[in-house]
Amino acid sequence: MGALNAESISKNFSTAEARLEVLVDISLRLAPGESLAILGPSGSGKSTLLAILGTLDRPTSGTMKIGDVDPFKLAEPLLAAFRNKQIGFVFQDHHLLPQCTVLENVLVPFLGSGSAGKLEIDEATQLIERVGLSQRLLHRPAQLSGGEKQRVAIARALVRKPVLVLADEPTGNLDGTTAAEVARLLLDLQLEQKSMLVVVTHSRPLAEQMQRRSSLENGRLVECV
């Protein structure tokens, strides 16, 4: 299991009037088991940075390695396979498939590389039990509370034991008590699997639970003391 090394990442967008610099010369290193919160106001580039770290977008300049792999040098099919196996995503709006059960939603990452067999089903079932939803195994998202949906999303993100977990406002739609429970669960599972965790958030209480904190200011990543 390797580290995350991003060097001099920049992202620009060209408009009819000017070039918009969203990210400027960002360097970031994370070791296995480390967690990082990235704070910043809306429009500061947090989601753009997360998309690049998750290989969903490419930087204008700069390099990135996850372990000894530069994902941006991979052909698209290999990049998709790498992302599916090595990177887990938790979104604010969970993005569960409404027609699928809890178990089926957690198994979705396995379907990208074929089908889910008995071993994968057993692992998914164990993880669903770990997030406290063993009684909801065959329920569909419409039958779940907001906190339960986010627990399913966490299980889905971690079911393949990715080296990097990326969370975009994972507690943004939850009340304070539920948000604290979901945050603790995410951190506990991340530490157990020794994956790296990057969370972008407006929530100072959530950020305070991470080992490290940085903020995006004028497109630059600044470490918080």
Rank of each mutant, 00 (worst) to 15 (best):
G54T: 05
E17I: 03
D188G: 02
E169P: 07
G2H: 00
S14L: 11
P98D: 10
S134G: 04
L107E: 06
D70E: 08
T60C: 01
L133Q: 02
R212V: 11
V131A: 04
P205C: 14
Q86K: 07
L185N: 04
Q99E: 15
F91E: 08
K149V: 08
C224I: 15
C100T: 10
A6F: 02
P109H: 10
T178F: 01
L197S: 01
Q209M: 12
V108M: 15
F13S: 07
L74R: 01
A81T: 13
R58A: 13
S8Q: 12
E21F: 01
L221A: 04
G43C: 12
V24F: 04
R140F: 14
T171A: 08
Q150C: 14
G33N: 12
L186C: 09
D188Y: 05
D57I: 00
E129F: 08
D168R: 10
Q92W: 15
S115D: 13
G176C: 13
S44R: 02
S215F: 03
T171H: 11
T125Q: 14
Q211M: 06
H95Q: 09
A16M: 08
D70Q: 12
R136I: 03
L103V: 11
R204D: 12
L49S: 12
D68H: 05
V182F: 15
S195H: 07
G45A: 06
E169L: 05
L191E: 10
H95D: 12
T125I: 13
P141M: 12
V163P: 04
D25Q: 06
T63P: 03
N105G: 15
P77V: 05
I52G: 02
L144W: 07
A153N: 14
E223P: 08
G146D: 14
L50H: 03
M196E: 05
S27N: 01
A51T: 11
P170S: 09
K73L: 12
R83I: 12
K149E: 14
L96D: 07
S215Y: 06
D57Q: 05
L56R: 04
I154D: 02
G112Y: 15
N105I: 13
V163A: 14
T15K: 05
V225P: 13
G2E: 02
I87L: 10
E169A: 02
A155V: 10
G147P: 07
Q86H: 06
S203Q: 11
L216R: 01
S195L: 14
T15L: 03
E21H: 06
Q99L: 14
S8T: 13
K73H: 02
K65S: 09
K194P: 07
D122Q: 15
A3W: 01
L107R: 02
D70N: 15
K194F: 13
V131R: 03
Q150H: 12
L127S: 04
E120Q: 12
P109C: 10
E76S: 11
L107V: 10
E104R: 06
G54Q: 05
L50A: 09
L206S: 13
R184T: 06
C224V: 15
F89M: 01
A37V: 04
L191A: 07
S145N: 01
V163K: 09
V198N: 13
L107D: 05
A153H: 09
E123I: 05
L78P: 01
K118G: 04
E148W: 09
T60N: 00
G2K: 02
D122L: 15
G172D: 02
A155N: 11
F72A: 00
Q99H: 09
Q126N: 14
H139D: 08
G67N: 00
F72C: 04
